[in-house]
């Protein structure tokens, strides 16, 4: 454990010296704000089908998945059976499978085993993005710090959404709703600036995603499924065209 942390600290020493857990708490703040807005809307939806604040809060604390929870509310509303629940959950949340595969490669071989049961709970789009952006091995404390702050916001937002309904002013919901996307940009753009291939990858991904949302037939594909298809195809093609070298990966990953 200390070994891992020393190794990670060494690699990133310089710019910021805050302990990893504190850095996690700090980086969790913008995630928390963005989550609050989204989960507030989620709470309003849950209230719409007759879920209580407790049920919606448990759902958010237990699932921590935006599209996944919207799907879950739909399933509960339609009184879906177990098989349908499980298959829908798998399809809607499959991108987390890819993210976990990716993040599993950022763990030090010396990392105690129990982290492999705790880290999965933390895999959301945003926390995954930031955890992968760390240079070298991931120090799990960083991920846990972010998770505590952001899941608190996520769950509180859901509960308040159920209890307060439409009390939050539209302009505030509007403004907060883009903060998560701003974070995504802050994760992918700086490496793209330094690496031409990643820049190309980002441009191709955004273009393809744009096409998927306007072209007939393709636009019928659900959001979660679109992410899976495009990730498999584009990241797969990128891996064939431009396999990374060990040094490159450790420096930038």
């Amino acid at each position: 454990m200390t070994q891992t942390s020393e190794k990670t600290q060494e690699i990133t020493a310089g710019a910021r010296q805050l302990p990893w857990f504190v850095r996690g708490l700090r980086d969790g703040i913008p995630i928390c704000m963005g989550y609050f807005a989204v989960s507030f809307a989620l709470g309003i939806t849950a209230r719409g089908i007759g879920m209580t604040a407790l049920q919606a809060g448990l759902m958010s604390a237990g699932m921590v998945a935006s599209a996944g929870e919207f799907a879950a509310i739909g399933l509960i509303a339609s009184h879906a059976g177990v098989f349908e629940m499980i298959t829908t959950c798998i399809v809607v949340n499959m991108r987390y499978f890819l993210m976990s595969c990716s993040l599993s490669q950022k763990l030090s071989p010396d990392l105690p085993f129990y982290h492999r049961f705790l880290l999965p709970y933390c895999i959301t789009d945003e926390i995954f993005g930031l955890s992968s952006a760390v240079k070298g091995y991931l120090e799990p404390k960083y991920t846990y710090g972010m998770t505590i702050v952001s899941v608190a916001g996520w769950t509180t937002g859901t509960v308040l959404g159920v209890l307060l309904g439409n009390i939050m002013p539209g302009w505030a919901v509007n403004a907060l709703s883009v903060s998560l996307y701003g974070m995504f940009l802050a994760i992918i753009i700086p490496p793209a600036r330094q690496n031409r291939f990643i820049l190309g990858l980002v441009v191709v991904s955004m273009t393809a995603s744009g096409l998927f949302s306007v072209l007939p037939v393709l636009r019928e594909i659900s959001g979660g499924f679109k992410v899976i298809i495009l990730t498999l195809v584009i990241a797969g093609a990128a891996a064939v065209i431009h396999p990374i070298e060990e040094s490159e990966e450790r420096r930038e990953a």
């Binding site: 890819l98 993210m99 595969c101 995504f184 992410v227 990128a238 396999p243 990966e249």
Partner: peptide, 14 residues
């Protein structure tokens, strides 16, 4: 390489 590129593609698409 595939797993290394996953975050960039996924986040850009989202």
């Amino acid at each position: 390489s595939f797993l290394y590129y996953v975050p960039y593609v996924t986040l850009a698409v989202m």
